[in-house]
Design a binder for these strands. Structure first.
Length: 156
DNA sequence: GCCAACGTTGGC
DNA sequence: GCCAACGTTGGC
């Protein structure tokens, strides 16, 4: 099993909304590297850290799970969608997505500030300056540490 | 195929 | 709301 992190602006789509909806198609990813991770490497059952960006505070808000592997993102063909891509053809769609299901909402956000303090997380693209990747792989040790930080916060 | 201009991301 | 850093586009 692999671990991942996806970013979302909570005003757009938050962990609480995922909790309410239970599952969602992870549509709207329009970056090739992020697409490739979804298309080629995200497998059913993989666990996904759900990160709130542009938030107060920004940080990891919970966990989701891959519930359906790569398939074409329908929004690329929807003329009125923000994610419409006129260059993409139905016979050979440019953009792929996975489906995510809700697993857990952390009692408190594990803030970016806290993640940055962790020496062992310094290799994560998330904490690197200038990285805007919205879907990224996470190492098992990184995943476990973030989970531990989420639990530590609960006790405080 | 270079690279300037542009649009977007996302922390602050 | 600002703006640095980045990815993409398009003229040449």
């Amino acid at each position: 099993m692999n671990y991942w992190l996806v970013k979302s602006e909570p005003e757009e789509f938050s962990i609480s909304l995922l909790k309410k909806k239970r599952t969602t198609g992870w549509e709207g990813v329009r970056n090739y590297l992020a697409r490739n991770y979804m298309r080629d490497f995200m497998k059913n059952g993989d666990l996904v850290l759900f990160y709130h960006s542009n938030a107060e505070p920004s940080g990891v808000a919970g966990i989701a799970r891959v519930s359906q592997e790569s398939h074409p993102d329908p929004s690329q063909f929807e003329r009125h969608s923000d994610y419409y891509d006129p260059k993409s053809k139905r016979e050979s769609p440019t953009w792929m997505m996975v489906e995510l299901e809700f697993v857990e909402e952390f009692p408190a956000i594990v803030a970016l500030e806290v993640l940055k303090e962790q020496k062992s997380l310094e290799d994560m693209p998330l904490v690197k300056k200038g990285t805007r990747l919205s879907v990224m792989p996470v190492k098992p040790a990184e995943f476990e540490l973030i989970l531990k930080l989420a639990k530590a916060k609960t006790k405080a």
